[in-house]
Design a protein around this nucleic acid. Structure first.
Length: 740
DNA sequence: ACGTAGCATGGGC
DNA sequence: CGCCCATGCTACG
């Protein structure tokens, strides 16, 4: 262990051991502490002569491949002074800097960040094999092999994070991570690992390295050049054939990127992620509908305050198939080939992707041969889709978390979007609160934010056509208007609802959970936080919403740009179209013959699902969770069919999870909120509908889910009180039976 | 009978 | 016209 500062310490140099009065900071130890050195040793270290002076007789010296300078590679002291070349050998930092424009090694990770145990056998990999992993060609960048979770063959190493290659930046403040090399392809799986020395002749494998990255938030830009996108390969020949020596990037790209990674990025920076030139180019090569639009805003908000930024990569509007229970998300080929690792085998590899909450999801990234081409799919997305309550028409966004470089997956509800994002063709399905309409208590007015049919609409119409349906004589324009919707999360809705005035309540017990069913639709409160009137207060220091608050605010609604709030009966028109037509997939039905829509409606009279059985009626009334009588005044209700569907889902978990097949996707989240839920105001909960009783550590039980909802509701009320919002707020009457 | 995996098909761009 | 991709189809467990 490195010594901590203190007069009683002695010099960390074992050959010196001089008592320290004013210790000088030496190298960074694995503990994260710096070695305390005496003045002389400290000077030697700072001069880069420490190993030359004290370790001359030690083993582990190697020569820089470029300049021939000898470096004590087997020593932690010199750890930051060299890089491991992909082709073998080392290069001193000076040469590396010249060629890579790289910076020294990062902070040494704490020993606790390493996985202990036998290091995996290191195998060399041919340049060909490696290139098959790293990919080649004019792609923005390629992910490093550690993107691939190695857990399949190494269950003990399952907790991995994926790191993505990214543009190297020219930023002297960044540090360089030692080089790495891919591991041998084992079977069909690329168990590629970066290896690095710990300075003590130990090699750490990929997983350790990922922990290393994760723990230290090392800019991925500091990755060896083989990770670097927009790379221009420099190949050097040798006796065994061509191998990749290194990849270089145009400095201009690095410069651009460097703007994006300064310490403590400003809010502006977070909100406007500058892209590397090549990425921008690649992005423009994508079809418009796949171009990333707003993941930055969304995630920046969630990751705000940290040094983390997001580089949007691509996005996709979920089709009915994508959002169905098959659990396969078809990836646009171009996007997959551009932004995801190249795969040579159809079975592909598991990818670890973080969601917006930092939860890791392992999805199988693979392809199907198709007409001499490929169809790229992400398998096992159902838990994620369900957890995020995504439906057809919603948009899944992919981005890269920087500086960690992890692949992140966000989403955007089709019904809610950023007003600032008007340029995107999806915007015409977006909802903006129309303050005046709310104030007046008028029914919501639908107003398209732009003229063109949205991609969602197009897809929905396409889906409808494909299914042989018609538009029921409605014009597209009419359909557009129908598509206007308000879809909010369960928690959000919970916080906005009050019992209906005619409070005829029937308490229904479903799977041990009490629900209140009302004959009349509940009343929706409009928190002032969503009106322009309160915009200032929302953003004012006085009532600055915490990130947790913001998480559960109606997402995507930019309070600076409220224009209108559109609503229609249909909660998810695309899902309606896609599933309502009945043929989307039989797997979309939770029970045979029961066409449960994502919005919870349309159960057949013969439906035998729990909810229908419990209520003994084909169309259940609006329900709300049963609350403590003391909370009636601030109770929340379920106003929407969407929420009702949620409850159905939650309710059914108790039965369904028993037989639920474990999908490829798994969450590795150790959700601290499980312990601190009572303390976490507005702590967002990803309720994994794929939960299984035998995997309690990874998922919530039904009661947990309900408890969470209650807690969220309480938190909502607390938040509203904090915001000095009227509990009654502005209400508006619901029409029909669905509350909206 | 049902769920799933993989391939085939065909509409749309 | 060729490719992409949504989803239909079917063999299989």
């Amino acid at each position: 262990m490195a010594s901590s500062s203190g007069a009683s310490k002695v010099c960390f140099n074992s050959t010196c051991n001089q008592a320290l009065e004013l210790p000088r900071r030496g190298w960074l130890c694995r503990t994260g502490d710096f070695a305390d050195l005496c003045d002389r040793c400290g000077s030697d270290f700072e001069d880069g002569k420490f190993c030359d002076t004290y370790h001359l007789n030690a083993s582990g010296w190697r020569c820089c491949e470029s300049c021939g300078k000898q470096i004590h590679c087997g020593c932690i002291v010199s750890f930051h002074m060299f890089i491991l070349l992909d082709a073998g050998g080392i290069e001193c930092l000076k040469c590396a800097k010249t060629e890579y424009i790289l910076t020294p090694n990062p902070t040494w990770p704490s020993a606790s960040h390493f996985l202990h145990g036998p290091a995996e056998r290191i195998n060399d990999i041919s340049a060909k094999s490696w290139r098959s992993i790293a990919g080649s060609g004019p792609v923005p960048w390629r992910q490093g092999p550690n993107l691939f979770s190695a857990f399949k063959g190494h269950p003990e190493l399952q907790v991995t994070s994926c790191s993505l290659g990214q543009s190297t930046r020219i930023d002297p403040s960044e540090r360089f991570v030692n080089s790495w090399r891919p591991q041998e392809m084992t079977g069909n799986k690329a168990l590629a690992s970066r290896m690095h020395y710990d300075g003590q002749n130990n090699l750490f494998n990929d997983v350790s390295y990922q922990s290393f990255f994760h723990a230290n938030a090392i800019p991925l830009s500091s990755l060896p050049a083989t990770f670097v996108p927009h790379c221009q390969k420099t190949e050097t020949g040798n006796a065994s054939g061509i191998h990749v020596k290194r990849l270089c990037i145009p400095p201009s790209i690095g410069k651009q990127c460097s703007n994006n990674n300064g310490p403590g990025p400003s809010v502006e920076k977070q909100a406007h992620i500058p892209k590397a030139q090549g990425e921008t180019q690649a992005s423009h090569q994508l079809l418009p509908r796949y171009r990333p639009q707003s993941i930055d805003q969304e995630i920046q908000r969630l990751y705000g305050g940290s040094n983390t930024t997001i580089t949007p990569l691509f996005e996709k509007v979920l089709s009915a198939s994508d959002a169905g229970k098959i659990g396969r998300l078809v990836l646009p080929k171009k996007c997959a080939e551009t932004y995801l690792p190249s795969i040579s085998e159809p079975e592909g590899y598991p990818l670890v992707i973080k969601d917006l909450k930092g939860k890791d999801w392992v999805l199988q990234y693979r392809f199907w041969p198709n007409n001499n081409s490929r169809m790229y799919v992400l398998e096992g997305v159902t838990p994620y889709i369900q957890s995020m309550q995504l439906q057809a028409g919603d948009t899944v966004t992919f981005g890269r978390l920087e500086p960690e470089g992890k692949l992140v997956m966000g989403f955007r509800k089709a019904s809610l979007a950023y007003p600032s994002d008007k340029s995107h063709e999806l915007t015409n399905t977006r909802i903006f609160a129309h303050e005046e309409s709310l104030k007046d208590g008028n029914a919501f007015k639908s107003r398209k934010s732009d003229g063109a049919l949205s991609e969602v609409d197009k897809i929905s119409i396409r889906a409808k056509r494909k299914k042989g349906g018609n538009m029921n004589g409605k014009s597209l324009k009419h359909k557009e208007e129908e598509i206007c919707q308000l879809s909010v999360t369960l928690e959000q809705v919970q916080g906005l609802l009050q019992p209906p005035l005619a409070n005829t309540c029937m308490v229904v017990l479903i799977d041990g959970v009490e629900f209140e069913a009302f004959q009349e639709a509940p009343i929706i409160r409009i928190p002032k936080a969503f009106s322009t009137e309160n915009v200032g207060s929302l953003c004012s220091p006085k009532v600055e919403p915490t990130p947790e608050h913001q998480e559960h605010m109606l997402p995507m609604i930019d309070h600076e740009n409220f224009e209108s709030l559109k609503t229609m009966e249909s909660v998810d028109p695309l899902a309606d179209l896609a599933v309502h037509d009945g043929k989307a997939s039989r797997q979309d039905c939770h029970k045979p013959g029961c066409m449960q829509l994502p919005n919870g409606t349309n159960h057949k009279s013969t439906c035998t699902c729990n909810v229908c059985l419990a209520l003994n009626r084909p169309t259940p009334p609006p329900m709300m969770m049963h609350h403590d009588p003391e909370q009636v005044g601030t109770s929340v209700q379920n106003p929407s069919r969407s929420m009702y569907a949620d409850i159905i889902c939650y309710t059914q978990m108790g039965n369904s999870n028993k037989n639920h097949k474990t999908g490829p996707a798994r969450s590795f989240e150790n959700d601290p909120s499980r312990e601190n839920i009572s303390d976490s105001t507005f702590k967002s909960q990803n309720i994994d509908l794929n939960m299984q009783p035998e995997r309690e550590e990874e998922s919530y039980s039904v009661s947990d889910a309900m408890g969470i909802m209650s807690l969220v509701q309480e938190s909502t009320q607390r938040y509203i009180k904090q915001q000095k919002l009227s509990v009654n707020g502005i209400t508006y009457g619901a029409h029909k039976n669905h509350g909206l």
